[in-house]
């Protein structure tokens, strides 16, 4: 599913920062992996590259058989929209939209008709057990609920992979465990490839494979 070959990334600046120094990585379909590393190790950069949020300088990145390199902004947006679902630490829901509107948003950008995307978003919220909360705004919900809305939003486009950046980082331990259970169940039942970036060993322990990154290389 994911194939990285000798990927390098340098941030330009007064003092160029060589963040990724030749990453080789293979992730198969249906895997649940975690990426761990100290801050500054390059794990966020790796996630950005995996999520087509950022470009890399050298090497090759294949996502579901497609070479992802030097894409135009428009193509990148399209791939992100169709292939990748994002889950962020701070949920990143749009505050002035209701839960269901937030979940609808990726479909809106795909050009799915109004009625259909509403139906799909409601279905997704139902799976998360949030049907009653569909018309509520993010600030009326608890952290766990917000993260579940964000997960619904990530899943609604049926992406090939889910990228989660510290999905439990902003949650208390109990809700964190619930969210992790949810992610694991999705991986198990719907065979969605899932990559979780974390520095929490407890979270990492629940995944099939742990990828440790240090100083820009995989250990």
């Amino acid at each position: 599913m994911i194939k990285l070959r000798n990927v390098h990334k340098t941030y330009a600046g007064a003092q160029p920062l060589h963040v990724l120094k030749g990453i080789d990585l293979d992730i198969a379909e249906g895997e649940l992996v975690s990426i761990m590393g100290a801050s500054g190790s390059g794990k966020s950069t790796l996630l950005n590259i995996l999520g087509i949020l950022d470009d890399y300088d050298e090497g090759e990145y294949h996502l579901a058989g497609t070479l992802i390199k030097n894409l135009s902004e428009t193509r990148a947006a399209e791939y992100r929209n169709r292939m990748i679902g994002f889950i962020f630490q701070s949920f990143n829901l749009i505050s002035f939209k209701t839960a269901v509107e937030n979940v609808e948003l990726p479909l809106f950008y795909q050009g799915v008709s109004r009625r259909k995307r509403h139906q799909m978003a409601m279905d997704e919220l139902e799976k998360m057990g949030l049907t009653d909360w569909a018309a509520h705004y993010p600030n009326e919900m608890s952290g766990g609920q917000r993260q579940r809305v964000a997960i619904a939003r990530a899943l609604v486009t049926r992406p090939q992979i889910i990228l989660a950046d510290e999905p439990t980082g902003a949650l208390d331990s109990k809700t964190g465990i619930e969210v992790m259970e949810l992610l694991k169940r999705l991986n198990r039942e719907e065979h969605i490839t899932m990559i979780i970036v974390t520095h929490d060993p407890n979270v990492a322990a629940q995944t099939n494979r742990i990828i440790r990154i240090k100083d820009g290389v995989i250990e």
Binding site: L53, E73, A77, R80, R82, I94, P106, Y109, Q110, R153
Partner: peptide, 16 residues
Amino acid sequence: TTEIGIRRAIGATPRV
């Protein structure tokens, strides 16, 4: 900025 960034992340093209 954040909101626009989120929109971009979940698939809004620059044109949108």
